[in-house]
Amino acid sequence: MTVLAIENLNVVFATEGGDLHALRDVSFKVPEQRIVGIVGESGCGKSTLINAILGLLAENGRIASGSISFEGEDLAHLDDKAIQDLRGPRLSTVFQDPMGALNPVISVGRQMRNIQYRSDLARAEKDARSIDMLRQVRIPDAAQALKRYPHEFSGGMKQRIAIAMALMMEPALLIADEPTTALDATLEVTTIELLKDLQAEIGCSVLFISHHLGVIAELCDDVVVMYAGEVVERGSTRQVFGNPSHPYTARLLDCDPARQSERTRQLPTIPGELPDLRRRPEGCIFAARCDRRMDVCAAIPPDIEVVPGHVARCFLAESQ
């Protein structure tokens, strides 16, 4: 069963400088009980993708074409009220900044009770569920924690509370938008392990956004590599990391400091910068920065399936 299937999704923002094509023919799937990672540098469209799924695109943005099918319903064509009813119980989100994700003037207990406003449980039962969730994310003295305010917790604890809140309604899909980026390295590891445990326990799928390759490799079953609003490569984490078939993925892996085997004075980078999406270059989106560019790259490359499930949008990719 597929929980989330995105097909040929195009998102366009109307800006003063003309239409900005933020997402172009994005397709991928999140199967049931799997963790799918989305990786890409800043500005590649990760956040736009999340907002499109959640139905929270900015006012000037719209889904131009394509479909986002979630549990059999097409979110791209659902009205606002219907998507709103899915957010929370079926589809929930953890955000990047744990400092800002909790309302500073409301106690944690009340915020957790607020999330359950749709259920008819009595107050005490809701609190009991909140305590149970806080225990699951390993908040010490959970009963007391309900009475506290967000500023009384550390950043890591706040992020765990945010995760507890997101998983409280046992959603089918958890979207985690760089949930570990604002945390330090040790916390990052524990948070990742926690997410993995909770995912297995609740049995939900996770869409995990990050620009940290190590975290993706550690946590995710599948990975989607995005560049400038396009999915350039997707497949199982093992396949994509082991046999990168798009030059961008290969360069990205080369740039990961964790993969450097010898000391260098300068870490490798990918020369050039992201293209202006208002004036999208013809042909391959990565051509301008690609070191293996060919004449044929002036045309848009097809999605080539390297092995079943592993797809790269590049002329160089070869079916095996």
Partner: peptide, 29 residues
């Protein structure tokens, strides 16, 4: 624009709910 309002939105809170539960307590003091 604050993240907890976005978070509430992403949890399916309606506009009146966000104004009442999240914005009001932060502004009336």
């Amino acid at each position: 624009e604050s993240e907890f309002v976005t978070a509430a939105l992403s949890m399916g809170a309606s506009t009146p709910r966000i104004l009442r539960v999240h914005v009001m307590p932060n502004v009336v003091g």
